[in-house]
């Protein structure tokens, strides 16, 4: 179910990017897409009845059933990369606003 929802998030994010010319909303769309793909990766790595991949007093041995730690490591990387890209995108957005006085790309015109 969450797998399906996360795919919907990717589609919704794509719609968000395509349907607007406002730079902030485009960035929101990208973030929705990224959250979607992150949840999808975790859902792919989930194993029915698997424990969180941390050895502890409750789950002491490595022969128990665990969920996929690789998928989680990939998502951690992807979250941090997403933060970096968003910050850079926002600075570009500020530059656009400083130069043209608007966040709306359709008001800027083609050549700039």
């Amino acid at each position: 179910m969450i797998k399906f929802a996360s795919l919907l998030l990717i589609v919704i994010g794509l719609y968000g990017i395509l349907s607007t010319r406002n730079v902030i909303k485009i960035l929101v769309g990208i973030n929705v897409m990224e959250i979607g793909i992150n949840i999808f990766i975790i859902a792919i790595g989930f194993v029915n009845g698997g424990a969180a991949p941390i050895l502890s007093v409750d789950n002491p041995g490595s022969l128990l059933k665990f969920v996929d730690p690789v998928a989680q490591a990939l998502v951690l990387t992807s979250i941090v990369i997403g933060l970096g890209v968003t910050a850079l995108g926002l600075v570009f957005a500020r530059k656009i606003h400083k130069k043209h006085g608007t966040y709306d790309l359709s008001e800027i015109g083609g050549e700039s």
Binding site: V85, G89, F92, A93, I96, S112
Partner: peptide, 10 residues
């Protein structure tokens, strides 16, 4: 041209 860089980033 920040709008072009933004476009590239998206």
């Amino acid at each position: 041209k920040p709008a072009q860089s933004f476009n590239y980033l998206v």
